[in-house]
Structures are given as structure tokens and as C-alpha cells.
């Protein structure tokens, strides 16, 4: 397994390099440039040219590419070409908020999705099952950001329970949780829908296995059949696939961060696109790629850990 992990890490280097190159080209192919975006329509052409020079955009593209690649290899993400603020500090400031949001949503997905999935599987074709199926269908169809706006309207405007602006103070638990609750719930409900569906189908498959029939015929109480014999086996794919859903959630979190005005990688990226902040945009997108590669690797490794029958070659 160790050898496999090392090999995968080395394999991801060319992937990241390709991603970086593509990102570098794509952000520059976009029409418009950061100096114009920064100075607005009032500034003269001369002022725009002078700012372009101070941003280092007057040198040929290949030089910009090599310069950025060199600093990236040294672990230096550079400074925002708009504000001059270090990109690494920007990422360090917002990353905890994105991780907090994503992981809360995953946890919520599991703690609500598994019980709902179990109830749907056990009471198959009953009202509970139909209800859960409709719920998960809605959860999968409704965009998380729209759900977020609905939740804001109910809990913040009507009931005035939770704030709608910002991410709260990172190190103040109360403020942090108050600001996290609604965004995590918006994203978590989508995750719940995924997990509910997956738990239901996985458990139904297991419940139809021969060994379950055998257990039942031996007179083992249904609770033990369900929670001891069936659920443990049914959970294996659900837990392992959590990693893949985390990737989906990181993508969905972009809109949630915008809607809730939360700090995070998503709002950092969208702001950078609007401002044509090349350095910030490149670094954030490379980081996204890194997270996706890492999560895929971890998921693969978890498979083997949960199910020892899986061999890594």
C-alpha cells in the first residue's frame, strides 16, 4: 500500500503541471486585463500602461510563465497583482473556512443520510420510503445556493436566529458556529440526499444476500440482523465514496460562499476572476487541483483499509 501511495503521489505531479499550464493559459486568454479592471473607466490609457508595467504584465508571456513556475517550485505563491497582498496569506486566511464548511456538510450528510437511508430500505415501498425518495430527489435537484437563500429567508429574516453576512470570527466558537450553521445546512442537505439514496440502495442489496436470509432463518432478532450483519457491510461503499462527494461539495461550496458572503477558496477564486488577479487565480486553481488529487488518493487508500480484500498493485 505504501508503494502504491508513493507511486500515486509521483503520478500526480505531471497532472498538477498540466493543470497549472492550462490555468496559466486560460486566465490570460480571457479578454480584458487586470490594470483596466483595477483602474476603472476613468483612468487614461497611459495610467493603464503604467500599472500594467508595475504588475509585471509588460514582459512576454513565456517569461511570465517561467517566472511563476519558478516561484511555485520554490513554494512562493507570489502576491496578488491587484492588492499586493501575499497569495499564501490569503489562502491561509480562508482555507479553514472552506474546510470547515465542507467537512460540516459531509458530517451532516452522514448523520442524517444514514438513518434516512436505513429507514427507507427497511420500510421499502412504504410511506417512509416514498418520503425519503422524494426528499433525496429534491435534495439532488435543488441547487445548494438556492436552498441557502431559502434557509436565509426563513431562519434569518423571518425568525432572526442566524446571521447571513460573513463567516464570523474563526477562533470564537460561538460566532463561528452561528455563521456556519446555515451554509453547512444548505450544503449538508444536498449531501444528505446523496447519502440517503446510497445507503438505501446499498442496504437493500445486502438485505437480499443469502447470509441475511440464513441469519433470519436462525431466528436472530431483526435489529441484530440489520445493525450487525447488514449495515456494516452496506456502509463500506458509503464511507469510501464520501471522499468523492467531498470533491463535489468543494465545488458546490463556491456558490454557498458567495451567497453567504463567507470567506473561502470559492469566494477568493470568483473575486480573482472578476479582477483578473492572475497570481491569486492561478494559485487557487492549482490548490483546487491539489485537493482533488489528494482526495482521490485518500479515497483509494480508504477502500483498501475498509475492505482488506482489495489489493494494490
Amino acid at each position: 500500500m505504501f508503494n502504491y501511495a508513493v507511486r500515486r503521489i509521483f503520478q500526480s505531479i505531471p497532472i498538477l503541471f498540466i493543470v497549472f499550464t492550462l490555468v496559466f493559459v486560460i486566465v490570460r486568454v480571457l479578454p480584458g486585463d487586470p490594470a483596466t479592471a483595477a483602474l476603472g473607466d476613468y483612468a487614461s490609457q497611459a495610467a493603464v500602461e503604467s500599472l500594467r508595467k508595475s504588475m509585471g504584465l509588460d514582459v512576454p508571456l513565456w517569461q511570465q510563465y517561467l517566472r511563476f513556475l519558478g516561484s511555485l517550485l520554490r513554494g512562493d505563491l507570489g502576491n496578488s497583482i491587484i492588492t499586493g497582498y501575499p497569495v499564501s496569506s490569503q489562502i491561509v486566511n480562508v482555507l479553514p473556512y472552506t474546510l470547515q464548511l465542507t467537512f460540516s456538510a459531509i458530517i451532516l450528510g452522514y448523520i442524517f443520510g444514514i438513518p434516512l437511508g436505513i429507514s427507507a430500505a427497511v420500510k421499502r415501498n412504504s410511506f417512509v420510503d416514498y418520503f425519503n425518495r422524494v426528499f433525496s430527489l429534491i435534495g439532488l435537484s435543488i441547487p445548494a445556493f438556492y436552498l441557502g437563500i431559502l434557509l436565509m429567508y426563513l431562519f434569518s429574516i423571518k425568525l432572526r436566529w442566524f446571521p447571513v453576512v460573513g463567516g464570523g470570527e474563526l477562533w470564537s466558537l460561538g460566532s463561528n458556529l452561528r455563521h456556519l450553521f446555515l451554509p453547512a445546512l444548505s450544503l449538508g442537505l444536498v449531501m444528505t440526499a446523496y447519502i440517503t439514496r446510497m445507503t438505501r440502495s446499498s442496504l437493500l442489496n445486502v438485505l437480499m444476500e443469502d447470509y441475511i436470509r440464513t441469519a433470519r432463518s436462525k431466528g436472530i432478532p431483526e435489529k441484530i440482523v440489520l445493525f450487525k450483519h447488514s449495515l456494516r457491510n452496506a456502509l463500506i461503499p458509503i464511507v469510501a465514496l464520501g471522499g468523492l462527494y467531498a470533491v463535489v461539495l468543494i465545488g458546490s461550496s463556491v456558490m454557498i460562499e458567495i451567497v453567504f458572503s463567507r470567506p473561502g477558496l470559492g469566494s477568493l477564486m470568483v473575486g480573482a476572476i472578476k479582477q483578473r488577479d492572475y497570481t491569486t487565480l492561478q494559485s487557487v486553481m492549482v490548490l483546487y487541483a491539489l485537493i482533488v488529487v489528494a482526495l482521490n488518493l485518500v479515497t483509494d487508500l480508504i477502500y483498501g483499509w475498509i475492505d482488506p480484500r482489495i489489493q494494490y498493485k
Binding site: 437563500i149 436565509m152 446571521p163 453576512v165 460573513g166 458567495i258 451567497v259 453567504f260 458572503s261
Partner: peptide
């Protein structure tokens, strides 16, 4: 001074009184 690109969010912030 807050930077919020979503008009719905600014609207909701004003309604809730946070903005």
C-alpha cells in the same frame, strides 16, 4: 466596508439588519 457580489445576499443582510 464589506465586499459582497451577490445582490440577494446584500438584500438579505439589509433585511436582517446586519447591513
Amino acid at each position: 466596508i464589506r465586499y459582497m457580489t451577490s445582490v440577494s445576499s446584500r438584500e438579505l443582510g439589509l433585511q436582517s439588519g446586519e447591513l
